[in-house]
């Protein structure tokens, strides 16, 4: 199997990312980034030699990529989506639901439609932009992401979700 990652974001500013950024700036000023972007991140485990089929597959379903609303990028694991501000240092955190019917149902649908997919999984990729002088930004981002208490991070509930550095 070969994993192919597709990052999908809104063409317009993402209200979810804006709310998350301002909530983090208010509640965790030391760990909050300067800028925060959010992408739907799709992981497609493709059958051997079939990675090239992903581009056609995602344009087939406007629920995955709607060209009127979304832009999408095929990324290598840990890769940076284009368009991030060069004045900042960037790191990413990937948030997966441990169990979700969306991924299950997409896997089932794609296989039924004859696409060469073993498994599909959908999560959120949060991209954190910190000032250049900030140190250990991956650790700052994980602190901001993991919601262990109501006064700590925000982006992932540790009981039902896992947050991992995107690298």
């Amino acid at each position: 199997m070969e994993a192919v990652y597709v990052a999908v974001r809104l063409k317009s500013p993402d209200p979810e990312a804006v709310t998350a950024l301002y909530t983090l700036k208010r509640t965790l000023p030391c760990s909050a980034p300067e800028l925060l972007f959010r992408y739907d991140l799709w992981e497609f485990l493709m059958k051997p030699g079939e990675a090239g089929a992903v581009a056609g597959m995602i344009t087939h379903f406007t629920d995955i990529v709607n060209p009127n609303r979304h832009v999408s990028f095929i990324l290598p694991q840990g890769g940076s989506p284009p368009g991030e501000d060069d004045g900042l240092s960037w790191t990413g955190v990937l948030v997966w639901d441990r169990l979700d019917s969306r991924s299950r149902n997409w896997t089932s649908l794609l296989i039924r439609r004859g696409f060469p997919v073993e498994e599909a999984r959908c999560g959120s990729l949060w991209r954190f932009g910190y000032p250049r002088e900030a140190r250990d930004i991956e650790s700052l981002a994980m602190t901001a992401a993991l919601s262990e208490t109501r006064e700590s991070g925000l982006l992932a509930n540790p009981v039902s979700q896992e947050a991992v550095p995107w690298r």
Partner: peptide, 18 residues
């Protein structure tokens, strides 16, 4: 109290989402 020790996650039902 104050520690997140549970979650209300997305519905999980056969063939249904959302």
């Amino acid at each position: 109290p104050g520690s997140v020790q549970g979650c209300l996650a997305g519905n999980l039902a056969p063939g249904r989402t959302g």
